[in-house]
Design a protein around this nucleic acid. Sequence first.
DNA 1: GCGACAG
DNA 2: ATCTTGTCGC
Length: 240
Amino acid sequence: MGTVGAEEHRGVTAGPEGWPTTEAEAVAAQERLREAADLVGPGPGPDEVRTVAGVDVAYADDGSLVAAAVVLDAASLAVLDESVHVGHTSFPYVPGLLAFRELPSVAAALRGLSRCPEPDVVVCDGYGIAHPRRAGLAVHLGVLTGLPCFGVAKTPFVFDHEAPARERGAWSPLTMDGERVGRALRTQDGVKPVFVSVGSGISLDNACALVLRLAPAYRQPETTRRADRLARRELAARTG
DNA sequence: GCGACAG
DNA sequence: ATCTTGTCGC
């Protein structure tokens, strides 16, 4: 259980009051967080979701970063609102503690949404309860914002799963110690699946149904693609 | 005990 | 995450 590097400590004042600055504090915060997550309510079903937000962060070599939030119309996938937050890293990347590196900036980007400040659902780039302490990025953001939230990751991390059938829509359980923590969901025929796990305020069924609507043409949901593109474009514009 | 490990 | 050209395929 080490301490965060000294250079990484600078700037933590920019984060929320009481935001962890060491790995030990972060782990303790996650233990408390899992209690606050809503893993019961099914949340909004596919036909009840009008607006969906996607968030992502892009990093530069010098420690600067750009967090982006994009809100899409769930039916047409048209962009309804966009927001970026420019900042710098205040916590290193530590497997299992990604939220402490990304969330302060992501929260800031969400606060910057002016046209559509309260989307029906938020989609994260990473995991929810599929996490060593059941407190991944999406759980954290869901509790922090009070909005239904789930995660869509690109790699299996440390979980087990059988390959889902080849067709779009096919899925198989993502497990950890025999416990179901998410799903490997095929969003395109013959393309590697994405890994969906609940954060808070929405069921796994509803999350997966929404992911399929958000991914009509590519592996990843449009929310993530749009947020990723926006963050990179803004970072490039501020760099060389 | 050590290493691997979302982005 | 980021570093990076061409290349195979619809």
